[in-house]
Design a protein around this nucleic acid. Structure first.
Length: 263
DNA sequence: CGTATCCTGACC
DNA sequence: GGTCAGGATACG
């Protein structure tokens, strides 16, 4: 599920389960996660206390009393399950962080592509991330300079986390639809005015999705809102009625309306 | 720049 | 049995 809105909500789940608590056990169940967080490193988390949990882009960050930081990136299919003592683990449990009150934060990830990394005190690497989509620093002026030298399509550029942090395949497509911009447009060929529209489009879809995520996350039913273009190939554009098209850009699906999204 | 790669499941 | 999947990086 994870793009910025889903990760934002996941971070609140993680915070509720771990903030102020001391870690009493860490289990890394899948070799894929063990590569990034070897058993001996995982063990070193025991006895450390979680002082804060926040999010930057799609990364959830557990700040620890020791000064270290545990970063969790869900990639494609990661999610948290909160388990009480004695609860059975979910089918795709990949890692388990147990707190001193007996509650466990379980990384539930069918594809096992999630990445856990522990950064030692003082060695936390610079985030190679652009501004948050909801940050004031993310504006048309920033976009203009960030895209000035990029000849890739605007859709591809928006997936680059250095341009804007947290935007993924779904909301990049949705934002371009909001802004009426053809996803194939070269990134450096958008006028300042259209960049301004794009900034607004990104903020709109992210805000809407954050609200949606907190309301429906974990519910059995899918959000009723759904998407305007994503995963709607052949269905009518909600704005102009022309059928939504699907193309491939940089190996990933892009959905858009050729009727009302212009280059 | 495109493509492969990490994994596993769902779906045709 | 092949294709695709909401991410990111490494490689040619």
């Amino acid at each position: 599920m994870p793009e910025l809105p889903e990760v934002e909500y996941a971070a609140t789940v993680a915070r509720a389960a771990s903030h102020g608590r001391t870690i009493t056990s860490v289990r890394v169940l899948h070799a894929s996660q063990r590569r990034h967080l070897p058993a001996r490193v995982a063990r070193s988390l025991i006895g450390d206390r979680v002082t804060a949990v926040d999010r930057r882009g799609k990364v959830q960050r557990f700040h620890l009393a020791s000064g270290r930081r545990l970063d969790v990136h869900f990639r494609m299919t990661g999610d948290w399950t909160v388990a009480r003592e004695g609860d059975p683990l979910p089918r795709f449990a990949r890692a388990v962080l147990t707190m001193d009150d007996g509650t466990s934060l379980v990384l539930d990830d069918p594809r096992a592509l999630s990445v856990l990394t522990l950064h030692a005190t003082g060695t936390t690497p610079e985030d190679r991330l652009g501004p948050e989509a909801t940050d004031r620093a993310f504006d048309a002026r920033w976009l203009r300079q960030a895209l000035a030298t990029r000849r890739v399509s605007i859709k591809q550029a928006l997936l680059d986390q250095r341009v804007v942090a947290g935007l993924g395949n779904i909301y990049a497509a949705e934002a371009l639809w909001e802004a009426r911009i053809d996803p194939r447009t070269p990134a450096n060929r958008l006028s300042p005015k259209r960049l301004q529209t794009l900034v607004r489009g990104i903020r709109t879809v992210i805000r809407r999705a954050v609200r949606n995520a907190s309301r429906y996350y974990g519910a059995e039913r899918e959000s009723p809102a759904r998407f305007k273009v994503y995963d709607r190939e052949g269905l009518p554009c909600p704005r102009c009625g022309r059928p939504i098209r699907r193309i491939t850009q940089a190996g990933r699906s892009t959905y858009f309306c050729a009727g009302c999204q212009k280059s």
